[in-house]
Design a protein around this nucleic acid. Sequence first.
DNA 1: GTTGAGCGTT
Length: 443
Amino acid sequence: MNNKESYNDDLFQYIKVSEDEDESNAVEIPCELNGTLLLSTLVAQFPGACGLKFRNPENKCVRGLRLSDGKLHPPTEAGWGKHLYTCVFPKENKRKMEDVSPENSAAKTKRLEKKLICSDLICLGLPWKSTEESIKQYFEQFGEVVMVQLKKDKNGSFKGFGFIRFATYASQMRALAQRHNIDGRWVDVRIPNSKEGVVPQMPCKVFVGRCTEDMTADDLREYFSKFGEVTDVFVPRPFRAFGFVTFLDPEVAQSLCGEDHVIKGASVSVSSAAPKIKNKNNPTWKEEQYGSNSWDGNHSGPSGGSTNNGGSSNIDSLNMQNLGINPNGGGPPPNFNLPISLVAAALNQAGWSGFLGPNNSGPNNWGQNGPPQNSNSGKNWNNNPNWNQNGPPPSWNQGNPNWNGNKNGNWNQGNWSNGQGWGGNGGSGPAGSNSGWNNKPQT
DNA sequence: GTTGAGCGTT
């Protein structure tokens, strides 16, 4: 036992990362075996992050880290050291650079935010003991919270839902891109019905033509991140010479349309992505493959899915429902036939790092043969015999239609919602799991 | 006091 623990420590170096320079907010995240840190690993914990920096103790200057091929490199050959690393977010940086004088900074911020309309968000299913202070405190991890209203009835008793508002659109998007567990309850955060349609939907997605075969989703992400926060990348596999990149800011997307860019020595063309009609007549809508629960078949999974499924992205669709995952339901929904890599990646994005097996060594490390047999963290995958003996389908991780064909048995036939699947062994379920996965409804 | 889908002025 002790051996295993030290073995793990040897394999994965953890570095301390915070969204700001406040060390109390720091999260330890694992590097790869070669000493680099995957941007996707960073993004899994800090949605929207596009880089890392740290304060050089010698001259107090902030130093940025080198990013190449989706990998962040340690500041020196000696490695990561004991620095507290801080996330870099594209939007915040842009704003900082524009806010040169204090007297017009507010106006500029306002003008900027006007383009990226912030909406109130409804929070459903809040714990009864929530207070406006506690909710504000929770959501501040995604950015400045400017309003919290918990709804009460005439007697003054809390109705279990409320509204919040962030100062920036980027913060709002970060909050919408995640599941939220507050005091042990899964809380739904959405755009309120009353606001639906109010937010003008300029396309955030662009079409990237003339891609070469060596361009991975991570390549596109890395390249286009310099124009703004990238929330989704899709590169079809097998190779089809195009891709899609989705930006947080629709204006960034629009500004790039019509331009040619050079990536990996090749010229690609950026143009507007034709809005896709989500119906069965559209050939890009592959219901057989992805199910019919709003997954549009044209997106990669979130970061962590890495390149095996053609993508490297945050959750582009805002809520888990859009991935065909019902966070509050009992077990998988009826159309649960997403490739597991996508699900795992989505859950990883949502902070369920435990889903990916020990040490968060999930899809990033998985090859085409699925999770490691005796995983490189020294533990079996969930100790679940059904999994390890029969393994995943042969064409694992390739977005393949065989997945639900269940040719190797065991996948859809048990262990999903019988209460002893994921959380049963090895502690690999979601932390404090009382969610639908174990078929235990919230109370 | 109890509760758990929903959609905000009081």
